[in-house]
Lab assay of single mutants.
Amino acid sequence: MTEYKLVVVGAGGVGKSALTIQLIQNHFVDEYDPTIEDSYRKQVVIDGETCLLDILDTAGQEEYSAMRDQYMRTGEGFLCVFAINNTKSFEDIHHYREQIKRVKDSEDVPMVLVGNKCDLPSRTVDTKQAQDLARSYGIPFIETSAKTRQGVDDAFYTLVREIRKHKEKMSKDGKKKKKKSKTKCVIM
């Protein structure tokens, strides 16, 4: 069974824990209790493949930012979460993405942009803004509501699919490099 290491990042209060708990335990946590770091595991079937999701729910508070490099190193894919009623959390996505790329030393890291709290009427981040940002990053965008469960499975499952595509691409690139290195030079 394939294991996928997913990391949920975003500013404090955007609903990272609520999304994760909704996926794992099928219930909505409405009281806000700032996370330092929590880890969850769940076995699911995605596109006919049974897999184990190892999900790291991270601290959004700035005082825990020193811990970010460590979990970013171990993560295979990242859910970059903002709240649709919090423009600052949307603007912060850029910083999370840049930090992930720096730590992973790669421009090509599996990510999904997630606009959470889409059940709320007080939207300050337009869907088109988020779609445009995701398009500019070359990553999928999904709106979710941890409260109603809308888009929750889709967000995590899409990230797994992005990781699969990335692994497939990397193995193809690896095979191309191996083929090239088999060419021999004969000096007579």
Rank of each mutant, 00 (worst) to 15 (best):
residue 71 Y to S: 11
residue 78 F to S: 02
residue 75 G to I: 13
residue 83 A to V: 03
residue 113 L to Q: 00
residue 100 I to L: 06
residue 89 S to R: 00
residue 92 D to S: 03
residue 109 V to M: 06
residue 126 D to L: 07
residue 71 Y to L: 11
residue 98 E to R: 02
residue 70 Q to W: 07
residue 112 V to W: 01
residue 119 D to N: 06
residue 75 G to A: 15
residue 112 V to R: 00
residue 83 A to K: 05
residue 93 I to G: 01
residue 98 E to H: 04
residue 104 K to S: 09
residue 65 S to Y: 06
residue 95 H to T: 04
residue 84 I to N: 15
residue 121 P to L: 11
residue 83 A to H: 06
residue 115 G to E: 05
residue 111 M to N: 02
residue 120 L to G: 11
residue 126 D to E: 11
residue 104 K to L: 12
residue 64 Y to Q: 10
residue 98 E to P: 01
residue 112 V to A: 01
residue 100 I to Y: 00
residue 101 K to G: 05
residue 106 S to M: 09
residue 66 A to F: 04
residue 100 I to D: 00
residue 76 E to P: 01
residue 75 G to T: 14
residue 83 A to M: 03
residue 118 C to V: 10
residue 93 I to W: 05
residue 99 Q to C: 13
residue 123 R to C: 13
residue 81 V to L: 10
residue 81 V to S: 04
residue 106 S to Y: 11
residue 66 A to P: 13
residue 80 C to I: 14
residue 124 T to A: 13
residue 104 K to W: 11
residue 124 T to Y: 10
residue 104 K to T: 07
residue 116 N to L: 15
residue 117 K to Y: 15
residue 88 K to I: 06
residue 91 E to C: 04
residue 97 R to N: 07
residue 122 S to R: 09
residue 125 V to E: 13
residue 63 E to V: 05
residue 113 L to G: 03
residue 121 P to W: 06
residue 98 E to T: 06
residue 106 S to H: 08
residue 113 L to H: 02
residue 113 L to R: 00
residue 105 D to L: 04
residue 115 G to T: 06
residue 63 E to N: 04
residue 83 A to G: 15
residue 108 D to K: 04
residue 79 L to T: 00
residue 102 R to H: 04
residue 96 Y to S: 02
residue 105 D to K: 06
residue 102 R to G: 12
residue 80 C to W: 06
residue 98 E to I: 03
residue 119 D to V: 02
residue 113 L to V: 05
residue 78 F to M: 01
residue 73 R to T: 10
residue 77 G to Y: 06
residue 88 K to W: 14
residue 119 D to R: 01
residue 69 D to H: 04
residue 95 H to W: 13
residue 116 N to W: 00
residue 74 T to C: 12
residue 64 Y to T: 13
residue 91 E to I: 00
residue 123 R to Q: 12
residue 87 T to A: 14
residue 72 M to R: 06
residue 120 L to W: 09
residue 97 R to V: 15
residue 68 R to Q: 13
residue 74 T to S: 13
residue 90 F to R: 03
residue 121 P to Y: 12
residue 109 V to D: 01
residue 103 V to R: 04
residue 75 G to Q: 06
residue 73 R to G: 12
residue 77 G to M: 09
residue 122 S to Q: 06
residue 79 L to H: 03
residue 90 F to C: 06
residue 76 E to N: 10
residue 111 M to V: 06
residue 93 I to F: 08
residue 108 D to W: 08
residue 71 Y to T: 14
residue 103 V to Q: 07
residue 102 R to F: 08
residue 108 D to A: 05
residue 118 C to W: 09
residue 80 C to A: 05
residue 114 V to K: 02
residue 108 D to M: 06
residue 114 V to W: 01
residue 95 H to P: 00
residue 109 V to A: 03
residue 124 T to E: 14
residue 79 L to V: 10
residue 79 L to G: 00
residue 65 S to M: 07
residue 111 M to A: 01
residue 88 K to E: 12
residue 69 D to I: 00
residue 67 M to V: 10
residue 67 M to D: 15
residue 109 V to E: 01
residue 119 D to I: 01
residue 67 M to F: 10
residue 121 P to Q: 11
residue 100 I to R: 01
residue 121 P to S: 13
residue 124 T to D: 13
residue 90 F to L: 14
residue 96 Y to Q: 03
residue 112 V to F: 04
residue 123 R to F: 10
residue 101 K to V: 04
residue 81 V to I: 08
residue 86 N to H: 11
residue 87 T to R: 10
residue 88 K to P: 03
residue 123 R to M: 12
residue 109 V to Q: 02
residue 94 H to G: 02
residue 121 P to A: 13
residue 126 D to S: 11
residue 118 C to D: 08
residue 123 R to N: 13
residue 78 F to H: 00
residue 114 V to D: 02
residue 77 G to F: 14
residue 66 A to N: 08
residue 76 E to Y: 10
residue 113 L to E: 02
residue 126 D to G: 10
residue 124 T to V: 11
residue 64 Y to E: 15
residue 72 M to N: 06
residue 122 S to I: 10
residue 121 P to M: 11
residue 63 E to K: 07
residue 70 Q to F: 03
residue 71 Y to I: 14
residue 76 E to M: 14
residue 64 Y to W: 09
residue 67 M to C: 07
residue 79 L to S: 00
residue 92 D to W: 04
residue 86 N to P: 00
residue 109 V to Y: 11
residue 101 K to I: 05
residue 97 R to A: 15
residue 63 E to F: 02
residue 72 M to E: 09
residue 105 D to V: 11
residue 97 R to L: 15
residue 92 D to G: 06
residue 88 K to F: 03
residue 78 F to T: 02
residue 104 K to M: 11
residue 87 T to G: 13
residue 119 D to K: 04
residue 112 V to I: 13
residue 95 H to A: 05
residue 79 L to A: 03
residue 111 M to R: 00
residue 121 P to K: 07
residue 122 S to T: 11
residue 89 S to V: 07
residue 124 T to H: 13
residue 89 S to L: 09
residue 122 S to W: 08
residue 106 S to P: 06
residue 91 E to A: 04
residue 109 V to I: 11
residue 101 K to Q: 12
residue 100 I to V: 04
residue 115 G to H: 04
residue 68 R to G: 12
residue 88 K to V: 04
residue 74 T to H: 12
residue 105 D to H: 09
residue 76 E to F: 12
residue 72 M to D: 07
residue 108 D to P: 07
residue 75 G to W: 09
residue 100 I to A: 03
residue 112 V to C: 01
residue 97 R to H: 05
residue 109 V to P: 06
residue 103 V to N: 09
residue 126 D to H: 08
residue 87 T to Y: 09
residue 75 G to C: 15
residue 99 Q to I: 06
residue 73 R to Y: 06
residue 64 Y to N: 15
residue 83 A to W: 03
residue 119 D to Y: 02
residue 65 S to V: 07
residue 68 R to T: 12
residue 99 Q to E: 12
residue 108 D to H: 12
residue 104 K to E: 06
residue 116 N to D: 05
residue 72 M to G: 10
residue 81 V to M: 13
residue 107 E to W: 14
residue 86 N to T: 07
residue 64 Y to P: 14
residue 116 N to A: 15
residue 100 I to H: 01
residue 110 P to S: 03
residue 74 T to N: 13
residue 112 V to M: 03
residue 106 S to I: 11
residue 63 E to G: 10
residue 76 E to A: 13
residue 115 G to V: 11
residue 106 S to R: 07
residue 74 T to Y: 10
residue 66 A to H: 06
residue 97 R to S: 09
residue 114 V to T: 01
residue 122 S to H: 12
residue 72 M to W: 07
residue 68 R to H: 13
residue 83 A to T: 05
residue 106 S to V: 09
residue 66 A to W: 03
residue 126 D to A: 08
residue 96 Y to C: 09
residue 76 E to V: 15
residue 66 A to G: 10
residue 80 C to P: 02
residue 75 G to V: 15
residue 126 D to T: 08
residue 91 E to G: 06
residue 123 R to A: 14
residue 70 Q to E: 14
residue 74 T to A: 13
residue 111 M to F: 09
residue 78 F to W: 04
residue 98 E to D: 08
residue 84 I to L: 15
residue 99 Q to G: 06
residue 119 D to P: 02
residue 88 K to T: 07
residue 120 L to N: 01
residue 64 Y to L: 07
residue 118 C to K: 07
